[in-house]
């Protein structure tokens, strides 16, 4: 980190931000710890665990999109890499499935590093289409190499064991996923408040301006891209472990669009926004089943309404509303 840039972007608001960071974490921790009291059945553990895992991937994308201002329509590609590592590592390399979680994350990081270097030279929609292409390539390999990946029908993921204890059951995964999200959120919030986070924010505002004050723009973008990929891969790995099964849908274009929607609908500039966005997009399909045939129409309508009336996203939007009241 460059000291000059550091000084340039260090804001006087650093102190209150610090407490806001801990407040966010505290709220999240309290929510994770208390909502199980209200769960009427095991199914709720499953859905809530899914929310935490999805939110972890979304928080990763928020670092890239919200903090570094770089769009990605291929985020699910990294989720897929993490997920398939859990299936392929044990099957072909005889590795313990739990070991495959960090290995998959590392692999995603390395791939992101290699792919990111050329891709991140592109801007805006061109970057979107390049990342879209990357995501499609991942899906295509997963779909076409049937002999290795199991093809479109997917592949089994072995159940994990720690000292002979098999990790299973929605409740166990609820706590694992909740813990992972808490750690992920903590890192993301720290990143946002760190000198490099402010460098990234500068980048978001204006790349040229960031460059002129001495920020190594390319390096920071690449770092955000790699971090986002690692988040995605860890989330994918956890998802695979939780499901005991993975299909190429996990890496698909639709999933990528969903992650982007989560980040934007929750609030592009907000880490907790990504969590809220993920919760919304995971919970809505469950809640909307009462509409039967109208399910998709209502989902689309809600997305539009949220974005029209809370255009900066749910979390910052509601925060602004509250402030205006106060």
């Amino acid at each position: 980190m460059d000291a000059k840039a550091d000084a340039a972007v260090l804001s006087a608001a650093a102190r209150p931000r610090l407490s806001a960071r801990w407040a966010t974490l505290l709220v999240l921790a309290v929510v994770i710890a208390t909502i199980p009291w209200f769960f009427p059945s095991g199914f709720y553990f499953r859905v809530a665990a899914l929310v935490w895992v999805t939110a972890l991937a979304a928080v990763g994308l928020q670092i890239l999109m919200g903090q570094a201002g770089q769009v990605s329509l291929g985020h699910a590609g990294f989720v897929g890499i993490g997920a398939y590592a859990m299936a392929l590592g044990p099957k072909y390399l005889g590795l313990d499935v739990l070991l495959c979680l960090p290995l998959g994350a590392a692999l995603a990081g390395v791939i992101a590093f290699l792919v990111g270097r050329p891709i991140l030279k592109l801007k805006g929609h061109y970057l979107a289409v390049a990342t879209l292409g990357f995501g499609m390539l991942v899906t295509m390999v997963l779909v076409s190499e049937v002999g290795i990946t199991g093809g479109p029908d997917g592949i089994r993921v072995p159940r994990a064991e720690i000292l002979g204890w098999r990790i299973r059951g929605s409740e166990t995964f609820y706590w694992i996923a909740g813990g992972a999200l808490l750690i992920g959120t903590w890192i993301a919030l720290n990143l946002q408040d760190s000198p490099s986070g402010r460098a990234l924010a500068a980048l978001h505002d204006s790349e040229v301006a960031a460059r002129t004050i001495g920020i190594d723009v390319a390096a920071y973008k690449l770092r955000a891209f790699v971090i986002a990929a690692v988040y995605g891969a860890v989330a994918g790995g956890l998802l695979a472990l939780m499901n005991g099964f993975v299909t190429p849908d996990a890496a698909g274009f639709i999933a990528s669009v969903e992650y982007v929607t989560m980040v934007v609908i929750g609030g592009l500039a907000s880490v907790p926004g990504a969590v809220v966005g993920a919760a919304l997009l995971v919970l809505l399909p469950q809640a909307l089943t009462v509409f039967h045939d109208y399910e998709h129409a209502v989902l689309g309508l809600l997305i539009m309404l949220f974005m029209i009336f809370l255009r900066v996203g749910i979390v910052p939007g509601l925060a602004a509303l509250l402030r205006r009241r106060a």
Binding site: V298, G300, M307
Partner: peptide, 18 residues
């Protein structure tokens, strides 16, 4: 912002399909 508008069109596309 442009990205908000894009998400609106994604919502619209889901809505129209629905």
């Amino acid at each position: 912002s442009a990205v908000t508008l894009i998400i609106i069109t994604i919502g619209a596309s889901i809505f129209l399909r629905g």
